[in-house]
């Protein structure tokens, strides 16, 4: 494991912890898209089907369990927690995420390594992760104002993507048999989706003002 991948994993973990902290501390999930959170939970569950069949390292297994549990906990809080669920912006969170799921499923059925249950769902999770942030970005766009913790959540998520791309470049240069193709393209798509957000995040940070997205 190289430093870029480790930094990517850590910023990914921090983004989830920031989100849990926001929900726990403010008892509110305002500005958070339930649809994006459901998609991430689905991404982790379908990608880590190998949890019990292929052992890579204790680090990998622990992180997989942590990601599945924390993403499920967030979805549970937003749907079921007596107080938290009241602050959910249902009227603004109208992205048709089922179409993303169906589109990724069709793509995974066409483009995959091997036609097995695990491999198809692994490919599905890679494609879905690339677009899972869309409902969240649309929700931020619609609500205009972004509170600090929500802004930091998306910031860390974007940092995770940037570190993973550096990791792939590093692996491409140092490992003989490392070829990316489809995963790299999905990774680039996912990272590009953040570019717009990062621009406004930078502007608000530079001016030391509240993050506001144009409508």
């Amino acid at each position: 494991m190289n430093i870029f991948r480790f930094a990517g994993d850590m910023t990914h973990l921090i983004s989830i912890l920031v989100l849990l902290l926001k929900i726990y501390a403010t008892k509110s999930c305002a500005g958070i898209s339930l649809k994006t959170q459901e998609l991430y939970a689905l991404v982790f569950v379908t990608r880590y089907l190998d949890l019990f069949t292929d052992f890579i390292s204790v680090y990998n297994s622990v992180m997989k369990v942590v990601f599945i549990l924390t993403s499920s906990a967030i979805v549970w809080c937003m749907r079921r927690h007596r107080i938290v669920k009241r602050s959910y912006d249902q009227a603004l969170d109208t992205f048709r995420h089922l179409f993303l799921v169906l589109g990724c499923l069709v793509l995974a059925l066409i483009v995959h390594d091997k036609f097995t249950f695990q491999e198809v769902f692994w490919a599905f999770s890679i494609y879905l992760e690339a677009v899972a942030i869309l409902p969240q970005l649309v929700l931020l766009q619609r609500s205009g104002n972004v509170d600090n913790l929500t802004g930091q959540y998306v910031f860390f998520l974007g940092a995770y993507r940037a570190f993973y791309i550096l990791n792939w470049i590093y692996r491409y240069l140092t490992e003989q048999h490392f070829r990316l193709w489809i995963s790299c393209i999905s990774g680039l798509v996912q990272t590009a989706l953040y570019a717009d957000f990062f621009y406004y995040y930078y502007i608000s940070w530079k001016n030391n003002s509240k993050l506001q997205l144009p409508s």
Binding site: H12, N60, D113, A123, Y164, R171, L180, W181
Partner: peptide
């Protein structure tokens, strides 16, 4: 395969 190289990642 072209994807298996990423199986050791998260």
């Amino acid at each position: 395969g072209y994807m298996s190289a990423l199986k050791d990642e998260l």
